[in-house]
């Protein structure tokens, strides 16, 4: 589904992504782990096209997408949510979701019809709102919504485009335990055929949802394996859990 080959990115002399390669199968839940500054968000920015790589290739369905723009990649079915909320602040929750749905359904440039009254756009809005637990808050102004609701909407915007590959950058960052549970349910409710990449700090959640885990450190892939393999791996324990080898 999604394949990354020898991907590199340098800002001046600093190599933030070093020779990263991995392959994600259709329908797979892949968690990207790594300490702060490991280059996880940079990797996402490279995948969606917000950054141009210094080298390497990204394949979506065996086709290179490195030359495509952010919007072109989005139209190919690559959708991402952000670590820091990146929403349409001046609009309501409903309008946010409708913009996402209309964009993905190619109704964003209609001159003679209102995309916000289109049946399938409205259906998607309802469906996604239900999914991210915002169905009762559709007419709320995003600016005055709670942090938790905004976090849910952040994922909702990515979902409303009906992506084939969903990239979620720390969806639970800054939220409490009850919302982490809610997010857990949300993940389990996602369509089975949807391919999901998640950057996640919450270890329990990560080990629980992941089919496979890729561990990054200093921009390099240092380990890849299943949850069980990752949990027991000494290198991972050292760099990610901060335990010295002698303790392990």
């Amino acid at each position: 589904m999604l394949e990354v080959k020898n991907l590199s990115k340098a800002f001046g002399g600093i190599r933030v992504t070093r020779d990263v390669s991995f392959k994600v199968e259709p329908g797979e839940r892949r968690v990207i782990l790594g300490p702060n500054g490991a280059g996880k968000t940079t990797l996402f920015n490279l995948l969606v096209g917000a950054l141009k790589p210094s080298g390497g290739d990204i394949l979506l369905d065996n086709e290179s997408i490195v030359g495509l723009s952010v919007s072109q990649r989005a139209r190919r079915g690559l959708s991402r949510s952000y670590q820091k909320n990146n929403l349409f602040e001046d609009l309501t929750v409903r309008e946010n979701l409708a913009l996402a749905a209309a964009s993905a359904q190619g109704k964003f440039a209609w001159m003679s019809r209102d995309s916000f009254r289109d049946k399938s756009v409205l259906e998607t809005v309802e469906e996604v709102a239900e999914h991210v637990a915002l169905a009762d808050h559709l007419d709320m102004q995003v600016r005055s919504a709670s942090y938790g609701s905004r976090r849910q909407l952040e994922v909702g915007l990515a979902l409303a485009t009906k992506p084939r590959v969903l990239l979620m950058d720390e969806p639970t960052s800054g939220v409490g335990p009850s919302m982490i549970d809610g997010f857990h349910r949300l993940l389990q409710g996602l369509p089975k055929e949807l391919t999901v990449l998640i950057i996640e700090h919450d270890m329990d959640l990560a080990f629980d949802v992941a089919d496979r885990i890729t561990v990054l450190n200093f921009g390099e892939v240092v380990f890849e394996g299943t949850s069980g393999e990752t949990r027991g791996n000494p290198i991972v324990r050292e760099i990610y859990l901060g335990e010295g080898l002698e303790d392990a």
Binding site: S71, F88, L99, A102, A104, F108, A109, M111
Partner: peptide, 21 residues
């Protein structure tokens, strides 16, 4: 129209609109 709705989105957050395609 859909065009006008998208224009308001562009005003509000151009980067995100791009990420939506």
């Amino acid at each position: 129209s859909g065009f006008g709705r998208t224009l308001s989105g562009l005003h509000s957050n151009e980067d995100r609109l791009q990420a939506l395609g």
